[in-house]
Design a protein around this nucleic acid. Structure first.
Length: 1148
DNA sequence: ATCCTCCCCTAC
DNA sequence: TAAGGTAGGGGAGGAT
């Protein structure tokens, strides 16, 4: 069952607040509240609210910036002045400047190369202008690099004849030092819609000739005043209709009466009847006949008015396209009382009806694909751009960045006020009224008392969700989360505006500017809601202050806010319920009991539908009833914390303090709309895009995480197609988590992790309806990066020392051991150790020493590396039978190697089951080889592998089709064993496994003389070296032999072969016991490693690890990694180098 | 006891 | 057509 998302704007308290005001009937609640002063609390603030109900609006109108977007107008004017000032400076400073672009005024749409910022500089330098917001009156050229299909129509609509040109035009003009014709530079995608050349060259043709500025695009007169100085655009001085081009006023879809809406649903129940197609068809016809007729103050040049056209995102995501003309269109509609006139309605239906026209068919095809993950490579990006919930959800992080300095200032004081409400705390809660609607309609006073809502679509039969509804609309029962078709059914003349995220962002900024100005303890709740702690403020009358703040908010933003005042955050918030809309309410200490007695429990923050329901089942409907239950009862029934919360909230008690936003603990991205996959290629592509998004968000916050959670929404077996268009419907929610030792924000790493997690779900991708990836366990990005930069094997391999004679690895270890400081460090893995390793790093020319132990060292912040080190120290302490110095040396090497592994093979540092490993390994192989292996696997498992370590190719979707999967029992036995097996078992398993791998290949190619020889070689190497005892002299001899062999090899080729690696492997296996041999061995081994790839290191490190006696999960974890790495290496090389191996066989 | 995973619930 | 996200917190149950 799909839950209705009761979110967005200020409609979030729709339930309780509407009931609160329900007694007012369908009359104007605003008037009622204002005049009544909010009931018995006739506060000063309320008095202001009451007296200003009419006065405020009239004063709004008559103030210097009274009408449309005065605030925004002012801002735009400033922007323009700023531009002019910069241009003046610029031209003074640089002699080479000329007026190349004089008369050219560009508007940059979307991402361009050069960037908008660069283009701005060019325009500054060469006498042109860059408009921040689109205005047909001022803009002469739209600059655009590329258009997603969804935008093509948009551009077609709003460009209205202006040339849409690639940014190269500007660059080339500068290069040629003359104003070139833009025609060759027009955007291909739009070329069929570009203004005809004759229109421009002949300065004639309907649209263009009516637009003085745009009619002179390529031949602007030198004396065009509009560009010769810094004019405040004429339209700023115009009355209502054309003022405030920057006001973001987007056109409403003035709504026609829809007679055919016959499928109504219960509120909140999204499982209604299907949309009536026939109804849409009738509208479609209507539109095609009479629609699409441009309507804009009669000049008939604006035919745009759909959501995509209007909405352009919010800062950092998309660019603004402002269309003052469009606003005028809507305004005209409202002035003329045209809400019910089909003619206007058809204009607004045009975009969605027009696809059926021939000219748009291609676009339609593409844009329709764009509604799901199918066929739109940019689906994820586009989805977020247009998602209201994404806007709401990500607002905090934007706020965090924007007001970080102020937040810091708060942090100090928030600690001080840890006192309960016995003190004299004064908390003010401020919440904007129906925020999304208010922002959009503040420029339309005529709409203030009309029902207005915000929605992506005004399709009266559609399943777009209402995000915010103003109070008149709520009178009709319209609520956030409701389908637009239901809203239209309740109120056919409902005016629907599209989103304008940029405007919300700007208003929110102003809102917080004001709050911070009045109070230094501000806690942001959302873009339209905050708490102020006035306890330590010198302000005597909080009500007066609240009213001042509210008034300032209104004067600055044109939007009203309500305020609740109380002794703690809980009560202040509840007070705001009573204050809304546009009022304020003070709950004094004495009132608390009475206030809560009849308050429905649902009104308490933290009680949602589920908890409300559970309470109702226990006959608890009001806070008074809640208060009758003991804390023990509540804790028993609802859990410790929840019970405690219920108990204290029902008494109006809250210990929450007004504080700053805490550091974020997780960052993620998810998409549960429009997710449809045909095959695993689709899903991988989608996942990859999602990872890009997550990665960029992490980087944007400067965070790197170690814990990754992949969430999947899987269609339930018996679930029907969702009622909501492209919705996820009835789904199972699944999630898998993995933790890696090295924090990361890198897209490649994250993608590989995500793909592995994804594989572990083992799903039919056709059932997937939503995917999300969340990252947590953050470490400081800079520190991680720094550590990793030092530690990368790449840096070591590419360093001078790496190509020089030998590494100093043994020297530095000996050096460190000799210092005798290591034991202490080992016992106490903390900062000291880190500094120890740093000094070690400086001792060695080899970059191998860039040990990246977590600097913090405390238990809580212990990273994989820290834990790892801990284990090392433990093993050092518990293995006293070995020479401590040697032991220590091993641990140092082990840690370093581990750090390097973690740095150079980042993505593989995650728990892998053998089945996953098999899948991964197999994936890397050529198809025919893979098939033959898959066929072999079960048989070989039985013969050559321990029963507890079967391979499970079924884990991988691709392999599943072979029907060679293992049973679930086998799988779980394996998994269990992998995770719980003790270390010694692991070592054995690894040995067995390698034997198994070798046997597998030997047997596979057993018919071939070549491969059986290979098999013999490998066996020989293993047994030969393994037979050596611990006697140093034996080893010396062996090393001599082997080094001869290796030297011989190295003369023949650059890279190590499987045997060579095996030799290194076995050699280094002995390192743990024979650290005195370091010097000898390194001469042999490290040149190979230098010339080799990271995989070798995996094997080498595994060997060292094996000797370190790691215990518990850590070892399992590392061993798994190493198995993975080494096996991939084995497999790949065995196949790739099969023939080369034959040569080696002869040698042996 | 404490931690972890896999959920679910909630607010915005 | 339509853009059902984000993040924190808590509970159950299992591992250590």
């Amino acid at each position: 069952m799909t839950r209705s998302t009761n979110s967005g704007g200020s409609s979030k308290r729709s339930g309780p607040s509407s009931s609160l005001h329900g007694s007012a009937g369908s009359g104007n609640k605003r008037r009622k509240t204002k005049s009544s002063g909010g009931g018995n609390q006739q506060t000063l603030g309320m008095a202001w609210g009451a007296s200003s109900s009419s006065a405020c609006r009239s004063s709004f109108r008559s103030s210097p910036f009274s009408d449309f977007g005065s605030y925004m107008s002012e801002k735009n004017r400033k922007l323009q002045e700023q531009f002019c000032a910069e241009a003046t400076c610029s031209s003074n400073g640089q002699l080479s400047l000329n007026a190349l672009f004089k008369g050219v005024s560009i508007f940059v749409d979307g991402l361009t190369v050069p960037s908008c910022q660069e283009l701005r500089v060019y325009m500054l330098k060469y006498g042109g202008r860059l408009e921040n917001y689109f205005s047909r009156h001022r803009v002469t050229h739209i600059i655009c690099s590329n258009l997603p299909s969804s935008k093509i129509k948009n551009i077609r609509s709003f460009s209205a004849g202006l040339p849409v040109v690639k940014p190269n035009w500007i660059v080339d003009c500068i290069a040629c030092n003359k104003l070139l014709s833009w025609v060759p530079y027009q955007l291909d995608q739009l070329s069929d819609n570009q203004p005809r050349m004759s229109n421009f060259f002949g300065l004639q043709g309907g649209l263009i000739s009516e637009e003085p500025s745009s009619g002179k695009i390529d031949a602007l007169p030198e004396n065009d005043h509009s560009f010769s100085k810094c004019p405040i655009p004429k339209d700023l001085k115009l009355p209502v209709a054309s003022r405030g081009t920057e006001s973001r006023g987007h056109g409403a879809w003035a709504c026609g009466e829809e007679e055919n809406v016959d499928s109504l649903e219960d509120k909140g129940d999204l499982k209604g009847k299907a949309v009536e197609i026939a109804e849409e068809d009738s509208i479609s016809k209507q539109t095609e006949e009479g629609g699409c007729v441009p309507q804009e103050f009669g000049d008939g040049s604006d035919n745009s008015s759909n959501a995509a056209n209007c909405y352009t995102g919010y800062p950092g995501r998309a660019e603004l396209i402002d269309r003052d003309t469009e606003k005028n269109s809507s305004l005209m509609g409202s002035i003329n009382g045209s809400f019910t006139k089909p003619s206007l309605s058809t204009v607004n239906h045009c975009p969605k009806q027009s696809p059926r026209t021939s000219t748009c068919s291609d676009d339609t095809e593409r844009s329709s694909k764009g509604h799901s993950s199918l066929g739109d490579p940019n689906f994820v990006e586009n989805f977020f751009k247009y998602s209201r919930l994404h806007f709401i959800g990500t607002w905090r992080s934007r706020y965090r960045k924007r007001f970080s300095s102020i937040s810091c200032r708060n942090e100090g004081v928030s600690v001080l006020q840890a006192r309960d409400d016995d003190g004299k705390n004064i908390i003010i809660h401020i919440d904007m009224d129906c925020f999304f609607v208010s922002v959009v309609i503040r420029n339309f006073p005529e709409l203030q008392d009309k029902p207005v809502a915000i929605c992506h679509s005004d399709n009266p039969g559609g399943t777009a969700e209402i995000s915010s509804a103003n109070y008149p609309a709520r009178d009709y029962g319209i609520k956030a989360g409701m389908f637009v078709r239901d809203a239209k059914a309740l109120c056919p003349h409902l005016v629907i505006f599209p989103y304008n995220f940029e405007a919300y962002e700007e208003v929110a900024d102003s809102f917080y500017d004001i709050l911070h100005k009045h109070c230094n303890k501000v806690q942001a709740v959302s873009c339209d809601e905050a708490f102020l702690d006035m306890t330590d403020s010198s302000v005597e009358d909080p009500e007066l202050l609240a009213s001042l703040i509210r008034r300032e908010i209104f004067e600055t933003t044109g939007c009203t806010a309500s305020a609740g005042i109380a002794r703690n955050m809980l009560m202040a918030r509840l007070a705001t319920r009573n204050a809304k809309p546009n009022g304020q309410f003070h709950i004094t200490l004495e009132m608390v009991d009475e206030y809560l007695r009849e308050l429905p429990v649902k009104a308490l923050p933290g009680i949602g539908y589920v908890l409300e329901d559970r309470l109702r089942q226990r006959d608890i409907l009001t806070c008074g009833q809640l208060r009758d239950r003991s804390k023990e009862f509540l804790q028993r029934e609802f859990g410790l914390k929840t019970g405690e919360m219920l108990w204290s909230y029902s008494r109006g008690m809250s210990t929450r303090m007004v504080g700053t936003l805490n550091e974020s603990k997780s960052v993620g991205a998810e998409v549960n709309w429009g997710v449809r996959f045909r095959d695993s290629k689709d899903s991988k592509q989608f996942l990859s895009n999602l990872c890009k998004e997550v990665s960029s968000r992490l980087q944007g916050c400067g965070l790197q995480g170690r814990k990754f959670t992949l969430k999947i929404k899987k269609k339930r077996k018996d679930a029907d197609e969702p009622v909501k268009y492209m919705g996820c419907g009835d789904c199972e929610n699944l999630s898998h988590t993995t933790t890696v030792p090295t924090a990361t924000d890198e897209v490649d790493v994250i993608t590989r992790i995500a793909i592995q997690l994804f594989g572990s779900f083992n799903l039919d991708v056709k059932d997937i309806r939503g995917i999300g990836l969340q990252v947590s366990k953050f470490e400081n990005a800079d520190a991680s990066r720094q550590a990793r930069g030092k530690a990368t094997i790449r840096s070591w391999l590419t360093s001078d020392s790496a190509t020089g004679e030998t590494s100093n690895i043994s020297h530095h270890i000996v050096d460190r051991v000799g210092k005798g400081s290591k034991m202490q460090n080992m016992k106490e893995p903390s900062n000291e150790l880190h500094s120890g390793s740093t000094s070690a790093a400086s001792l060695s020319r080899g970059k191998l020493v860039g040990l990246s132990i977590d600097q913090r060292g405390s238990k809580d912040s212990c990273t994989g590396r820290g834990d790892y080190l801990d284990s090392c120290s433990h093993s050092a302490a518990s293995n006293l039978e070995r020479m401590e110095v040697e032991r220590e040396g091993v641990n140092v090497l082990t840690c370093e190697a581990a750090a390097h592994i973690s740095a150079s093979m980042k993505t593989d540092l995650m728990p892998l089951s053998l089945s996953q490993i098999d899948s991964l390994v197999l994936q890397q192989l050529p198809e025919e080889v893979r098939k033959s292996i898959i066929q072999m696997l079960p048989a070989h498992r039985d013969q050559s592998m321990p029963a507890a370590t079967p391979s499970n190719p079924a884990q991988n979707g691709q392999l599943q089709s072979t029907n060679q999967s293992f049973t679930n029992n086998q799988k779980s036995a394996l998994e269990e064993d992998l995770w719980t097996g003790s270390p010694p078992l692991w070592v054995d398993k690894f040995k067995m496994r390698n034997c198994w791998v070798l046997n597998t290949f030997a047997d596979m190619y057993g018919q071939s003389e070549e491969t059986s020889a290979l098999s013999r070689v490998l066996r020989h190497l293993i047994s030969d070296i393994s037979c050596l005892d611990e006697n140093v002299s034996d080893w010396d001899e062996a090393i001599l032999d082997i080094s001869k062999l290796l030297k011989q090899y190295i003369r023949l080729k650059v890279e190590l072969d499987i045997e060579e690696m095996f030799i290194c492997f076995r050699l280094l296996k002995r390192l743990g016991l024979k650290s005195k041999l370091f010097q000898q061995i390194e001469k042999v081994v490290y040149p190979f490693l230098q010339a080799s790839v990271a995989e070798h290191y995996g094997v080498v490190t595994w060997t060292v690890l094996q000797e370190s006696n790691l215990t518990g999960r850590k070892q399992v974890w590392w061993v798994k990694l190493l198995i993975h790495k080494s096996q991939i290496y084995f497999m790949e090389n065995i196949f790739d180098d099969l023939k080369r191996q034959c040569r080696l066989c002869k040698i042996v």
